[in-house]
Every structure is written in C-alpha cells, then in structure tokens.
Design a binder for these strands. Structure first.
Length: 431
DNA sequence: TCTGGGGTCCTAGGACCC
DNA sequence: TCTGGGGTCCTAGGACCC
C-alpha cells in the first residue's frame, strides 16, 4: 500500500465568489454575504476582510462601514451556492472518484494512486480548470495528512506568491510553513484548546507537531493527540468515500419578528418538520425520536429555551405524523407571555428504512407503516416533478409571518427558469 | 430596531448490574 | 454511623468544524 497523499480543494470566500459569477462588476469590490434575516456576515471578499469586517460580524453594527466603503451586501442564496457546489464536485469527480465532500465549499481528494509527476503542477491545472468551468477561485493544499493539507491550503490562500496552490510532499520549506501558522488556526484547535497550548509555550504548528503525543493526549484529549500526529506527517484521519447518512437532522430558524402567537410558531414548526422529514426520507432512514425547541432572544436579558422530545416504538418518516407531534409538544410548553424568537425541530436515533424491526410486543402496525411509506413517496415525487410546495400540509399555511427576512437576495440564476441571467446583445457596426 | 444554521465526535458522570 | 469494587450503557454537554 502506498503512503497516503491528500489534496484539499477549498473555495475562496465561497458565497461571495458565487455571487460574483453573475456580477463581474463586483470583482475587486468589497462584498459580504449575510446570514438568515440578514443578520451576520458569513462570507466576505478579501476587500471586505481588509476593511476589518470579521467573520460573523452583526450587520447592524457595521452599517456605517458598509455605507462608507460601498460594500455590496447579499442575503444568503443557498439554492445558488448548492448548485455551484455540485458543479465543482462533479468536476473533481472526473479527476478522481476517491473524493470526500467535506462541506459545501471543500473536498478532500485521495491522490495516493494517481500517476502525478509534479503535485504543484497538477494542483495549478486543477485550479485553472475549476476557475474556467465554474468561475470560482479555489486554493489547493497537498500533503501526507488531512491536517497538513488543510494547513497547506490555508497558506496557499494567504500567500499570493503561491498562486493558490501549495504542495508539502517532499517540500524542503515545510517547517517554515508550519512555523508561520498560529496554533489557533490549525484544523482541530479551537477557542478552548489554543490558550491551553499557548500556556505550554506552543504557539505555532511547528511546535505543536513536535509535542509529545502523551502530553498532547493529556492536555487536549484523543483528537488533539491525533492532530499532533497528523502535523508530524502521519495520517490518522482517512478519507471518507461515498455519501454518509446523517445521524441527526435539525431544522431551525430565527423568526422575521418575535411572536407570541401559537399559530405562527406552529406553522414554523410544521415547516421545519416537513423539511426535516424530507431530508430523512432522502437519506433512506426512519427516526425513533423527534424533538422541538423554542427560544427567546439570546442577546436579551432573561434568555430562555424550552425543549420537548418524544420517542417512537416504531420508527417513522411520515411528515403528517411528525408535524402532529411537533405541534402537540409545543402545545404543552406554549406560554402566551413569551416573545418567541426562534424555533427548531430535530430528528435523531435513525434506522435504515429497509430494516424496520417488528417490536416484540406486537405493536408494529405493518399495514400503517406501508401506507405511510407509499403516501410519502407519492408526495415526494409530485413535489419533485411539479415544484417544492405542490403538495403540502395545511398547518404550514396557518401563518407564514415567521419567515426570516431576505431583503438583499440575488436571483436564483441557475435553478429557476424565471430568474436566469439576462444577456444583453450589443450591435456593433463596422464603418 | 437589528446578532445564522447545521453538523460530528468525545468525555464525564449517573444509572444500573453483579 | 459504618456500609466495595468494577463493569457497561446511556445521556447531556463540551468542543470542534463549516
């Protein structure tokens, strides 16, 4: 077996880059993409970063700066980003089928078995192909472990002279690159572990790579020890091929406005249960547990959260049943005096939908289960064919007022025929 | 006035059992 | 008032990620 070699392909400022595909006028211009309710900056162009807008910056605190520098703002348009993301991973799949889609904007590739003479040259050609075919700039890191590949792509992003690609395989400058990465910027080292390590005098990746594994385990737990080993060039985290089935599914939103209306909250919960159940069915699973939560505003004094959950003897994926249970659980905790700010539905404790166990007390109603499965299949295929909300449950319609605000949303350029980009034909005449 | 959403894995401690 | 030791399983919460 050959020594493992990984590439991490990481899109630059992904959401901003997606918006720029259709707005070339915004190249070199500061751009931010805002979260739900246009609340926080969740993606920033390099120009916006230079203005000092941090990740997660609350938009209302930066309005002045936005105005002063004419920062272009967009509400997050996940249909667009999801579509661009799929185009990129399809392209990468033609490079090698041994790919792990790590997130919407990052994929690991296993290069061990590929006949590549020069990894840096290979990286630059992949980068150029993605830019040409999708318009999205990426950074590529190549190394013998995932953690080092992450670190390499981070350097490739930050150091312009690298042209977006850094290979650390047999690279004599590896120690220099490790030394230039602060301990809190290492994959797997977060807000809690970084100060602990700094207190031990370990403030960069090179020092961490030389830490005694025993001490690392003691100080940072098993994952921290593995991170140390990975930085030392020995792979601990293998590539995960194929699509993984989720272990929990959560759907939640902050409301457009706080509300104390039970109808509005019920309508929101019904929508969350619907999308969660659809995701559950698409993953080929049934759930044994459903839970709900409702929150007040966490930034206001007296913040509170209420939760409720229930288990099913026979696991289900039936939207109607899940809506019913979500709404009735809310009925048990509803309080007319509360300003509800946010709510959510989660599903967990899954089993594959082809392995329904008959419980020993004879409580499993196979007939009801089969009827439900067929009903759901019919609804899903109608909605796939004729559009998302063709068939839905009435509870969702009781009130739509809970929906978050998205005042600055770009068109769904690539996924809705009515919102295609318009081309302007310019006639030129030769004299 | 205005502060996102969706995940995974690990660990400590309690419940329970022998 | 004293009243073992060890194992497993489960769960809540912590820490991390994008």
């Amino acid at each position: 077996m050959k020594a493992p070699i990984f590439a991490l392909v990481d899109c630059d400022n992904f959401f901003v880059s997606c918006e720029r595909i259709f707005r070339p006028d915004l190249t070199d211009h500061p751009v931010v993409v805002l979260s739900s309710n246009d609340g926080c900056a969740v993606s920033r162009s390099n120009e916006a970063k230079k203005l000092g807008i941090p990740m997660g910056a609350p938009a209302f605190k930066y309005q002045e700066l936005f105005k002063q520098h004419q920062v272009a703002k967009f509400s997050a348009n996940f249909e667009l980003y999801g579509n661009i993301s799929r185009r990129i991973t399809e392209l990468l799949t033609t490079v090698t089928p041994r790919i792990e889609i790590y997130s919407v904007d990052e994929s690991f590739l296993d290069l061990s078995e590929l006949p590549i003479a020069d990894y840096a040259v290979w990286g630059h050609s992949v980068r150029a192909a993605i830019l040409q075919w999708t318009g999205v700039p990426v950074s590529i890191g190549i190394a013998s472990s995932k953690t080092l590949a992450k670190l390499a792509s981070n350097r490739a992003k930050k150091l312009p002279e690298l042209g977006g690609v850094l290979n650390l395989i047999n690279n004599p400058d590896t120690d220099m690159y490790l030394e230039s990465v602060a301990v809190q910027d290492i994959w797997g080292i977060g807000r809690q572990l970084a100060p602990k390590l700094r207190a031990e005098g370990i403030d960069n990746a090179l020092k961490l790579s030389k830490m005694y594994p025993k001490l690392a385990k003691q100080l940072t737990g098993i994952r921290g020890r593995q991170t140390v080993t990975e930085l030392d060039g020995i792979s601990c985290f293998p590539i995960t091929l194929g699509s993984q089935r989720p272990k929990t599914i959560l759907r939640s939103r902050t409301f457009g406005e706080d509300t104390n209306s039970s109808h509005i909250v019920e309508s929101a919960l019904a929508s969350f249960a619907t999308t969660a159940a659809f995701r559950l069915r698409r993953s080929g699973q049934l759930a044994k547990q459903i839970g709900i939560f409702v929150d007040t505003n966490r930034f206001k004094p007296g913040f509170r959260r209420w939760t409720k959950n229930m288990s099913y003897r026979t696991p289900i994926a039936d939207t109607g049943q899940l809506i019913n249970d979500a709404v009735s659980m809310f009925g048990e905790i509803y309080n007319t005096g509360v300003a509800y700010h946010r709510a959510g539905v989660w599903l967990q404790d899954f089993v594959p939908d082809d392995q329904l166990q008959i419980d020993i007390f004879g409580n499993t109603n196979i007939h009801e289960h089969d009827t439900s499965q067929k009903r759901m299949q019919a609804i899903d295929s109608l909605n796939e064919r004729y559009g998302k909300h063709t068939v839905h449950y009435a509870t969702q319609d009781l009130a739509r007022q809970w929906q978050p605000k998205r005042k600055l949303c770009s068109p769904r350029y690539t996924t809705d025929l009515n919102e295609l980009p318009k081309a302007k034909i310019v006639h030129t005449t030769n004299k």
